[in-house]
């Protein structure tokens, strides 16, 4: 019974109740962001970026598309915080407009991948057998393709629009969700408490919602967060290549594309959209990493990071 030295701790387990377990969900979530410095920095960054994307455009005095030929390539100043571009358009307004596009694409793509991938993984793992085998091999095939190349092909086939970007970006991350859910469901199905739920007469839906889902959600939450980050960069690189959203739609990738011709004359045109992109990705990655470490019992430490 005393298999390894770790058992000393489990022998001590019976009456040990970590205090944070008894907090409510909100307290726990709040506590998590307060305790983990990465999560806190990430969350602050993200809130700032979201505010900028959805409220910011209403606060700035310029329209993002409003040219001003007398004020082309103006360096950052009090009247134009991020300077102006080759048509004299205010860069701050354009970066803010790009932010909302970026978020719309990223959130849409990640949620779409989640909505397709998660049920796919759940259903095929539930059915099992040949259906599961074939689906898994298809997922392998998608994963074997470079994600960006796949997105390029799809966006070329479907034409540039926000919706086609959703599909193009989501497509290559569907297998990740399918696998996470499949793995978790298969794992949960084998757990005795699911069998025990059958034994007391729980219905299928109750088992799914009360027993399986709560245990599948945490790894999914991590994946969605990390996927936001990758979707932001994929969208930017597609638009940079001119394959994503085309003018007049403003996107960070498009801004960067414009900027590359004037790197020496007007470096701010690349710096500001680039920084916005980097900070957004950073915020998601920080949060995702922190959640993952928190959920992994091997790295979890009560009372913060070590």
């Amino acid at each position: 019974m005393n298999a390894n030295p770790m058992d000393v701790a489990s022998g001590a387990e019976p009456t040990a109740a970590p205090a944070w377990r008894q907090e409510t969900l909100t307290q726990r979530v709040a506590g998590f962001f307060l305790r983990d410095r990465r999560a806190m920095v990430g969350m602050i960054l993200l809130v700032v970026m979201l505010f900028a994307a959805f409220v910011g455009p209403r606060l700035v005095p310029y329209e993002p598309d409003q040219p001003n030929v007398r004020n082309r390539f103006a360096a950052p100043s009090w009247s134009h915080w991020m300077g102006t571009d080759r048509s004299g358009r205010d860069l701050l307004s354009r970066v803010l407009a790009g932010a909302s596009v970026s978020f719309r694409v990223a959130i849409g793509a990640a949620l779409l991948a989640l909505l397709i991938g998660a049920p796919l993984g759940a259903v095929t793992s539930y059915i099992g057998g040949l259906v599961d085998d074939v689906t898994q091999r298809c997922m392998d095939a998608i994963i074997a393709f470079p994600a960006r190349l796949l997105a390029i092909v799809l966006v070329v086939l479907m034409g540039p629009s926000v919706v086609s970007l959703w599909f193009a970006i989501a497509f290559s991350s569907i297998p990740r969700y399918a696998r996470i859910v499949r793995g978790s469901v298969l794992d949960q199905k084998e757990r005795e408490y699911v069998e025990a739920a059958h034994a007391i007469g729980e219905g299928r839906l109750a088992i799914l919602f009360l027993y399986i889902l709560p245990n599948v959600l945490p790894p999914l939450a991590v994946q969605v967060t990390l996927d936001f980050a990758s979707a932001v960069t994929v969208e930017a690189s597609l638009s940079f290549l001119g394959l994503g959203l085309v003018p007049p739609t403003i996107s960070w990738g498009g801004l960067l594309n414009d900027a590359q011709q004037w790197l020496e004359e007007a470096p701010w045109l690349a710096i500001f959209p680039g920084a916005a992109l980097a900070l957004t990705v950073l915020s998601f990655v920080l949060i995702g990493d922190a959640i993952r470490d928190h959920l992994d019992p091997r790295t979890r430490r009560r009372g913060g990071t070590r």
């Binding site: 408490y193 069998e195 034994a199 027993y211």
Partner: peptide
């Protein structure tokens, strides 16, 4: 009704 072997895994 059923009582399982391992009470560490038979309770959610």
């Amino acid at each position: 009704q059923f009582v399982f072997q391992d009470p560490f895994s038979s309770l959610n």
